[in-house]
Write a protein that binds this DNA or RNA. Structure first.
Lengths: 247, 247
DNA sequence: AGATAACTACGTATGCCGTACGGAAATACC
DNA sequence: GGTATTTCCGTACGGCATACGTAGTTATCT
């Protein structure tokens, strides 16, 4: 009834045993589970989740494909281990200052983590594997707003609000960066090449407000760093709204 | 230099010609591009983007695989056409009431659209194919806040803020629904089966705040509809923050 | 010492995927 | 009637996850 892979993966996450084997008869494993996880993180960092494959993890370690399955139950479990691994790679600083500063710290930790490991945004997150670092992060996030005047239910909702917004904003930022790198074409160049086609194909003057706003936004954004600016604008509005709620 | 597929796709999006062919010599196509797009939408609705394949679109129409490529240049272009298609499937109502009501309408349109077509959240969105319905939607969103006291740049940032948050919240909601359906295991049942394993594996009392908040959140969420409730909580806070900003 | 059980590493096979290429049949124009 | 054009499709290639069976290595037990 119980799926043995589930037990095995929880044991791996919490480092209770190094895998399923108990006896010590056969040959020793050539690597540690941590080395497999780190190899996986390296592949995902370099190529993104869609291109992440068990073959590439094996190649990186000098193993053949099927040997990986003696370390971890499968691809999705390995990804769960990788998520918990990078969630814990930076120490979480103690909270300081007022509610605004604390929440800014929480949001920025997420923003930075997504930018360090863009593939985190490509992981299907419902029913995450609950590991030590994920649990520690949630605890750290909640202590940031403990005693600030929210009910227990609201505390969860506040973290969810920050997570949803930050993930969305980071996704925009990261997709733009990735597309520019992969295609070798900057946003400005891409837009410049699209304009003539659009002018030929779009009915003129059908979108008056968009045209005006788009021009201003385009000018401003090319000058400065755009998605980061939108992130800070949105975060400021959210923090204003939250302050109003507790007072 | 110019990619001919780009031209062809813009023509398809804006329905300037029905494809690349100009002369009218050979046999007629058995279907219209719209039928191909609708078949694609049906497949994606039923199975999600990862399982969406050109083979399945072909099967649904009674065509063989390679014939699809006479209608659309490739998989990613077809997805671009599908996105614009479903973006325009509902008429956008005129804006009414104060800023709060207007912005609520904008956010709810997105929320509903994501729930009608969950695969929209799985499309890589940077440099979207700009089609008539996408353009119309952006125009409609901007007119909702035209004259409310935002600068042109801020108007774009406000829509971005709502989009980021709504997409994030909808993703949580949809992932949960999909996982429950696919696995046949409800969130409550999954949690119940995880608790004993976690208790064995987790150091006790290491996460005091999470435990307390998690218990309350779990109880409340199982009773009511959870992700929708978090969405409304977050949206209310954001709207409070935006009202403060314009006044 | 020899047998045996346990374990690692891996070869092979299955069934998916997108799409490049080329050929056969159908159609419309000269 | 011939020819250019277009649709439809068969085949092939290189990729993917992973199920299954096997060879070889090692620690333990007899």
């Amino acid at each position: 009834m119980e799926n043995p892979d589930v037990d095995r993966t929880f044991n791996l996450l919490w480092r209770r045993t190094l895998g399923v084997p108990q006896g010590s008869r056969g040959p020793k494993q050539r690597f540690s589970v941590d080395e497999v996880i780190r190899a996986g993180v390296a592949v995902a960092d370099e190529e993104g989740l869609p291109a992440f494959s068990m073959r590439k993890v094996a190649d990186r370690l000098g193993l053949k494909l099927m040997s990986i399955y003696t370390y971890v139950p499968g691809r999705s479990e390995l990804i769960g281990l990788m998520v918990d691994e990078v969630t814990g790679e930076r120490e979480l600083p103690p909270h300081e200052g007022d509610l605004r500063r604390r929440l800014t710290g929480v949001a920025e930790e997420m923003w930075d983590r997504f930018h360090r490991h863009p593939w985190l945004l490509q992981v299907e997150e419902s029913r995450p594997w609950i590991g030590p670092h994920g649990s520690g992060l949630y605890e750290w996030q909640l202590t940031a707003i403990e005693g600030a005047g929210f009910t227990d239910l609201e505390m969860d909702q506040v973290i969810t609000l920050l997570s949803s917004f930050t993930a969305g904003a980071a996704r925009t930022s990261i997709d733009a960066r990735r597309t520019a790198q992969r295609s070798g074409i900057s946003d400005a160049a891409w837009w410049a090449s699209s304009v003539p086609i659009l002018e030929r194909v779009m009915p003129a003057d059908s979108y008056p407000v968009s045209s005006r706003v788009g021009q201003v936004a385009g000018r401003e954004y090319n000058a400065v760093d755009d998605p980061g600016r939108s992130f800070r604008f949105g975060l400021d509005r959210i923090l204003d709204g939250l302050r109003r709620h507790v007072s």
